[in-house]
Design a protein around this nucleic acid. Sequence first.
DNA 1: AATGAATGAGCGTTCATTCAT
DNA 2: CATGAATGAACGCTCATTCAT
Lengths: 187, 187, 187, 187
Amino acid sequence: MKHSAVRQTIIDTASDLFYNNGYNLTGINEVIKEAGIAKATLYSHFKSKDELCSAYLQHKHGTFLEAFDTYVNDVPKGKKRITAIFDFLKEFYESEGFNGCWCINTISEIPKEKIELRTEIKNQKNEFRDVLLNIIKDSLPELKPKKKKELANQIYLLYEGAVSESFLHGEVWPIDSAQSICKILLA
Amino acid sequence: MKHSAVRQTIIDTASDLFYNNGYNLTGINEVIKEAGIAKATLYSHFKSKDELCSAYLQHKHGTFLEAFDTYVNDVPKGKKRITAIFDFLKEFYESEGFNGCWCINTISEIPKEKIELRTEIKNQKNEFRDVLLNIIKDSLPELKPKKKKELANQIYLLYEGAVSESFLHGEVWPIDSAQSICKILLA
Amino acid sequence: MKHSAVRQTIIDTASDLFYNNGYNLTGINEVIKEAGIAKATLYSHFKSKDELCSAYLQHKHGTFLEAFDTYVNDVPKGKKRITAIFDFLKEFYESEGFNGCWCINTISEIPKEKIELRTEIKNQKNEFRDVLLNIIKDSLPELKPKKKKELANQIYLLYEGAVSESFLHGEVWPIDSAQSICKILLA
Amino acid sequence: MKHSAVRQTIIDTASDLFYNNGYNLTGINEVIKEAGIAKATLYSHFKSKDELCSAYLQHKHGTFLEAFDTYVNDVPKGKKRITAIFDFLKEFYESEGFNGCWCINTISEIPKEKIELRTEIKNQKNEFRDVLLNIIKDSLPELKPKKKKELANQIYLLYEGAVSESFLHGEVWPIDSAQSICKILLA
DNA sequence: AATGAATGAGCGTTCATTCAT
DNA sequence: CATGAATGAACGCTCATTCAT
């Protein structure tokens, strides 16, 4: 197996385990056993569990953004596309293995001193806000720049709240609620 | 020192440590050292770390609800009181030691099998929604019952999102954003 | 409750727990909880768990000897009475809560240095051998003294083996086997 | 040191300690200190103390059976070989570190729920009975099968009783007594 | 590049016992 | 005389990481 293929196997395996069972609750031994590799192999690809955590976050982020873009861009521009953001979330919520937001989950598990991981998480969220802003720019070009940014932040806030709360309660209403608020904001 | 006083010392100490540094990242040894008690003393008051976790969650919830009620009920009834919810949050955010939501933080740290803790967390959130609903009933009696409940859920969602996001970014804008949306909903 | 009554309650409770669940596996807390007394009350009656262990052994021994005497002396003198020893054991084996020999069980659980407990156990066994010897003297007066003693030791050995092995296997055959050997010895 | 060598070192060390000082009275810390290994090393070889206990029992059993076979098969076939069983036991009793029967000792120390260990112990005893039966088959082929099995059980019972009692009293007479009974049975 | 045995530090928990009240 | 809160020491066990091969 190619070097990079092993690396990807590790990331995929770790991602599933970290996301499903929690970062601290998943031991290195579990990862290597599931990935079918030796312990030192893991440490030759990632110099610490934290570094693997970083790779996990990036992997989830990349996969998410791709799925998100694909879904949303498939919807006609305009307000429809904006509210489709929450349709996407509903699908995400209903998909097998939904476990809330990896960023929120992970930030609770790591000590404050681990600046690099916390920065990674902030960056992801900021990038997601940019993605939302671009969708707005595309879909609602008539809005003033300031208004666009404000709306992006609002939708971001609703989205994040809906992820957390639908997960916490195990119920879909927070997503519906977020979407209904979104429609009001667009009115 | 009275028995119940020791118990409260343990809860206070554990609460600070769990909330500031994380539940799993805080060892029992740290709690007893900080509380100045022996390990067996802790275990005579709480039969497991999980039980102490439960006490921690309840302590935070109780303290929070009291401060919340005091603050909000001090504001004249009506829309003012509703939007004051986010003024309270801003004070909470700016207070020393703000570390986001103990529920969201804790639920990320515990395995799925720990039903009791997860139930405790859900109950707290539902109770908070009820508190919001009662404020609405008090402040906006003219609304239809269904509308009241819907509004309570919306404000709950905004509040929760604002807590998480202000903490994650270390910035106040999510609270402002939530409040501005709230005002729109009340318009 | 009278002082001595409390003491007896403790001994009875501890005896049941030590015998059924093992000496080391039974904690002081379990004893006091079951006996319905305070911890310091126990320690006012027994200055250590070892001392309670001693009382437990003596209690079992006394109860046993009484039941044994009653049973055996009810059988007509002669060889019948000797072999009835194993009928008694069969009843003991079949009684609820049979858990082998408290001496053998306990001696495995305590460190070699605890001479007092080990002596207590040896004394019990020697006393039991004397009891057997007396039964033989009573039942088979025609035997020579040396033969009596030899027979007592043999029956003792068979009895002890039968207790241990019936318990270990959870089967009655070792008692039958012991009895059949006994009959040969008497022939 | 080879992997399997470390494993054997652990078993040897644990066996000495468990057998001499008792299973519950011997902590894992004592085992690793004596074996000169790290705690996690022990747990990489045995996933629990119980599993180590199982290895200890098997080790004692194996060593015992080998010594037993060697000794007994060195004696000419016939009644001599049968009674030599107790000569072997006398040597065992007189050997340094004799501490009774590991099975009897261990079964007193473990809770009833530990079925696996209790089964292991029963199996060892049954295997020993089979060994005795085979010696009888070899040595006294003229006996009827039923008689052979009966005799095996009787000798087993005498042997077990003699082990326990010689250990308990610290005296050799139970072995002599058992052997004398054995001779009667063979007469 | 890959292995897996070995580690030191720490985990949550339980014990028999003491002592101020 | 009885209480029960508090203790220090030890328990069995798991962790992320290293290093000789």
